[in-house]
Design a protein around this nucleic acid. Structure first.
Length: 871
RNA sequence: GGGUGUUUAGCUCAGGGGUAGAGCGCUUCCUUCACACGGAAGAGGCCGUAGGUUCGAGACCUACAACACCCACCA
């Protein structure tokens, strides 16, 4: 048996263990031949752009805990790993790399550029694998996937075709969000609205007949695309203007003045310029009145020739110069400072430009309805934990617009559509052609699909769908998904409806939503703030087990967690505690192998701690099943510190010293307890627990493959439980505590010798334990003295007298304190018991309990009063 | 403009109709043969504010306030 070092050194113990698990095939799901219950989950595929950050740890560690927990419950766990090609994000990174070489993607051409992307992917995949390993994730690498894999390509095409055939996917010219930096369309949720300071410009428009009107805008540069001025039909002020024309101060063109209900007469000047090509509302108005849509910005948001002298300028440069020009001509009325929400591209952070553009869309209204209906059906719905996040989803589903699917990028799933002739007005279009379709004369759509289109297929595409594969049959739908609330719209919602549409089923039974990791001040971790923490640094300092314990403890489900190093240190200390308990056990069982539990007769304390363990086991499982990892962890931690290390382990030293049967009982119990703790802790801290276990059981004995049931003391078929012995256990502790407090209060050294007189011994050898932990030189059974501490347990009263000279004054003071406490408590009980409402309406057990308490306290009070009278 | 969450010990947070909890920090003491990454004993809270429900509210309800976040095409 390899002796454990004094301190647990995370580095040393983590070394090589992950590889061992992997080589043993511990992470591989059994597949169709298995008779076990399947438990399946998919790893949210990280972007190949990146380094792992603490946010990933928030998803993956709880998933790994679940995977390991369910394996230990005897289930066949499949946890599918994979990565996401992350369209825009990766393409941006690769382009940045090219820029350093003085190249652009266009210089390389599509094919060469994609080669560079794949090269990038290979390099980063390696990094990501290293990070999964560092976190100890028990992933089934034999089933690893990438979102651009052939199988996933097949799934994407199948889904695209089927949605197109159902009429849900369509091609159309609409106003979309345009990212002028990456030069691509974006979906609505890729646009981040931020409150910003801006300006509202008021311009004077000349009206036919010599009158004038004021029109306000925040975006003067789009005035070159204006086609009308709208007023409210209710407006009296402008009633006479309708039908006339107003002169656009930007270019001198005459615009028709029209009336529509859309205009709010009370907002601004009550008149609104209309730019159908650069505003979604104006576009609708334009269609309604058959107005032309005139674009004035190009794909980089530079001015088109229609802007005359401003051609080629950046939109903001143009704005400035145009306002200057209009002011010079005397048509500027005023500039007002305002704050308004401005849309930014999630990736490039450029201000998004609404543009009229031909794109592919997914029609959302029916789909949203399908999701809402499914969520009403308890048998089919996805259960959210915490529940409130279902509302987040449903609300979004109530007012989402059609999803713009196409991206003007190269890295991604190319849109599986071929055109004959000019792609913007094709004579013919083939969607998802079969292999034998003749495509001569056709060209494929040059765009790719939004990354999230393929991510949305992840739970079933990774299992082999659209083939009726064995894995798909066995592991779909997934058992659970764990993810952050920040990607409910991006990912969770899309998986749900993609899955409903493709497979007819929800992709998973439950979604566990967690919060975000924040910094010490509660700020989001971000590159710009420079407050990010690299998990690898934490792992190096405290070990991955400590990180895992930290990330899943001390927080409520769905709420954010603040990263504070002390918390990780505290987790490390906890693991060190377990480590040292094991070290102690190692020291005492060197020559004797512990007998199996219950094969030797056990004492009161053994039975007491085992009863506690049974309850801990139950509570642990209950909380784990409810994904309340923090609670399960807290229960375990408390058991280890307080009950195991603080009490039983210490007390058992007495039995060990005695030898014989008592020692055998203690060893057997200690060994069982330690193993139980290791088993229960293993999902949280797999490395340290396995290493400790290995020190006892020999190499290659992973706890992962053992049954968690072994952590529960079973007598016959039932968990061992004994209230009486548990009470004895507690009584001993209370007495020790009282004696210790006594010493502190009397300024005695903790190891100062004292003498104890017990009125009776609660169980055999009780005195021996008491003596050892109170440094009593003797414990006698006899008459209590006036200064006794009294305790009751299971209807019997015991007293503890410390044979020491305590002044009368002190005895009195102590008794008075005791009397005051008892009186207050009795008063509380009486208050309740004399309340007719309470007596009539409170539950019977509650009344009985209160009655009993009052009686007990009354008895103690009477005795205390008697004793104080004697003094 | 809608919506959600949070408000409990110095700090970070659990809890949850029946006498307020943890970790860290703090105070005092102890290097006792598993562990100073330790042990012992403590101090420290009218559980955001105001109403309501209830026999009983820190917990449930309603308002309000502060903070945080999400959603949103008003020129």
């Amino acid at each position: 048996m390899a002796l454990l070092d004094k301190h647990y050194d995370p580095h040393k113990i983590e070394e090589g263990l992950y590889e061992e698990w992997k080589q043993n095939g511990d992470f591989i799901a059994e597949g169709e031949k298995s008779k076990k219950t399947p438990f399946s989950l998919v790893l949210p595929p990280p972007n190949v752009t990146g380094k792992l950050h603490l946010g990933h740890a928030m998803d993956t560690i709880p998933m790994d805990i679940l995977a390991r927990y369910h394996r230990m419950l005897g289930e066949d766990v499949l946890w599918v790993p994979g990565m996401d090609h992350a369209g825009i994000a990766t393409q941006a990174k690769v382009e940045e790399e090219l820029r350093k070489e003085g190249l652009t993607s266009k210089d390389l051409g599509r094919e060469e550029f994609l080669k560079r992307c794949y090269k990038w992917k290979e390099e980063h995949a390696h990094l990501i694998h290293e990070q999964w390993k560092a976190l100890g994730l028990s992933l089934d690498y034999t089933r690893e996937r990438f979102t651009l894999d052939e199988g996933i390509q097949e799934a994407v095409k199948t889904v695209f075709r089927s949605l197109y055939e159902k009429g849900l996917i369509y091609r159309g010219k609409k106003i979309i969000n345009w990212d002028p930096v990456f030069e691509t369309a974006l979906s609505d949720i890729e646009v981040i609205h931020e409150e910003e300071k801006g300006k509202m410009y008021y311009f004077l428009y000349e009206v036919e007949g010599g009158e004038k009107m004021v029109v306000a805008t925040t975006r003067p540069e789009t005035m070159f695309g204006d086609v009308a001025v709208f007023v409210s039909p209710k407006s009296e002020k402008y009633a006479s203007f309708v039908g006339k024309k107003a002169k656009n101060p930007a270019n001198g063109e005459w615009l028709p003045i029209m009336a529509d209900e859309y205009v709010d007469p009370s907002f601004g000047t009550g008149a609104m310029k209309c730019t159908p090509a650069h505003d979604p509302n104006d576009f609708i108005l334009g269609e309604k009145y058959h107005l032309p849509a005139i674009a004035c910005l190009d794909s980089k948001a530079h001015m088109l020739p229609i802007a005359g002298e401003f051609v080629g300028l950046d939109r903001y440069e143009c704005r400035e110069k145009l306002v200057e020009k209009i002011a010079k001509e005397g048509h500027l009325v005023k500039i007002e400072n305002i704050t308004h929400a401005v849309g930014h591209s999630e990736r490039s952070h450029a201000i998004v430009e609404p543009m009229l553009s031909q794109q592919w869309f997914l029609k959302m209204d029916e789909i949203a309805k399908l999701v809402r209906e499914t969520q009403k059906d308890p048998a089919k719905k996805v259960y959210f934990k915490p529940k409130r996040f279902e509302k987040t989803l449903l609300r979004w589903m109530e007012n989402c617009h059609d999803w713009c699917l196409s991206r003007q990028l190269w890295w991604g799933h190319r849109i599986p559509v071929w055109y004959k002739g000019d792609p913007s007005h094709p004579e013919d279009m083939i969607v998802c052609p079969d292999k034998d379709t003749d495509l001569t004369g056709y060209t494929q759509d040059s765009d790719v699909l939004d990354t999230w289109f393929s991510s949305g297929l992840w739970p079933f595409a990774t299992l082999g769908w659209p083939k009726e594969s064995a894995d798909f049959k066995r592991y779909f739908p997934n058992s659970i998904l764990v993810t952050g609330y920040d990607i409910i719209f991006f990912w969770v919602s899309r998986m749900i409806f993609q899955s409903l549409l493709a497979t007819g089923k929800a992709p998973f039974h439950e979604v566990i939503i967690h919060g975000l990791v924040r910094d010490r001040e509660g700020r989001k971790m971000s590159k710009s703030l420079g407050n990010g923490v690299d998990p690898i640094d934490i792992i190096e300092q405290y070990g991955v087990d400590a990180l895992r314990f930290f990330i899943t403890n001390g927080t409520a489900p769905g709420l954010d967690i603040r990263y504070e190093e002390e918390k990780v240190a505290s987790a490390r200390d906890f693991l060190n505690k377990v480590w040292n308990a094991a070290r102690y056990l190692q020291g005492i069982i060197e020559e004797e192998k512990p007998s199996p539990l219950f094969s030797v007769p056990l004492g009161h304390l053994e039975k007491g701690i085992l009863a506690k363990l049974s309850r801990v086991y139950r509570a642990y499982c209950k909380n784990m099943d409810e994904f309340a990892f923090a609670k399960a962890g807290a229960i375990l931690r408390n058991f280890v510190y307080e009950e195991f290390c603080g009490k039983y382990l210490e007390w058992s030293k007495v039995s060990v010293k005695k030898g014989g049967k008592e020692k055998a009982a203690a060893l057997s119990t200690l060994a069982f307890l330690l193993k139980a703790i290791l088993l229960l802790l293993h999902p949280f801290a797999p490395f340290v627990t396995d290493r400790i276990y290995e020190a006892f059981a020999g190499k290659g004995n992973s706890l992962m493959k053992q049954s968690l049931l072994e952590a529960c003391p079973m007598k016959g078929k039932r968990p061992y439980y004994s209230a009486r012995e548990e009470a004895s256990f507690d009584l001993l502790y209370t007495m020790i505590q009282e004696a210790r407090a006594y010493k502190v209060n009397h300024h005695l050294a903790p190891n100062a010798p004292i003498q104890i007189i017990l009125s009776q011994e609660p169980f055999p050898s009780f005195g021996d334990y008491l003596a050892r932990f109170t440094f009593a030189t003797s414990v006698k059974i006899g008459e209590e003295s006036t200064n006794a501490f009294r305790f009751s347990s299971f209807g019997k009263t015991y007293s503890l007298s410390l044979v020491e000279d305590i002044s009368l004054q002190e005895q009195k003071a102590r008794l008075e304190k005791e009397i005051a406490r008892l009186k207050a408590d009795i008063a509380r009980s009486e208050n309740m018991l004399s309340n007719p409402g309470f007596m009539a309406k409170a539950p019977k057990e509650k009344i009985a309990l209160e009655e009993e308490k009052r009686k007990g306290n009354q008895a103690l009070l009477e005795e205390a009063l008697m004793r104080i009278a004697k003094l």
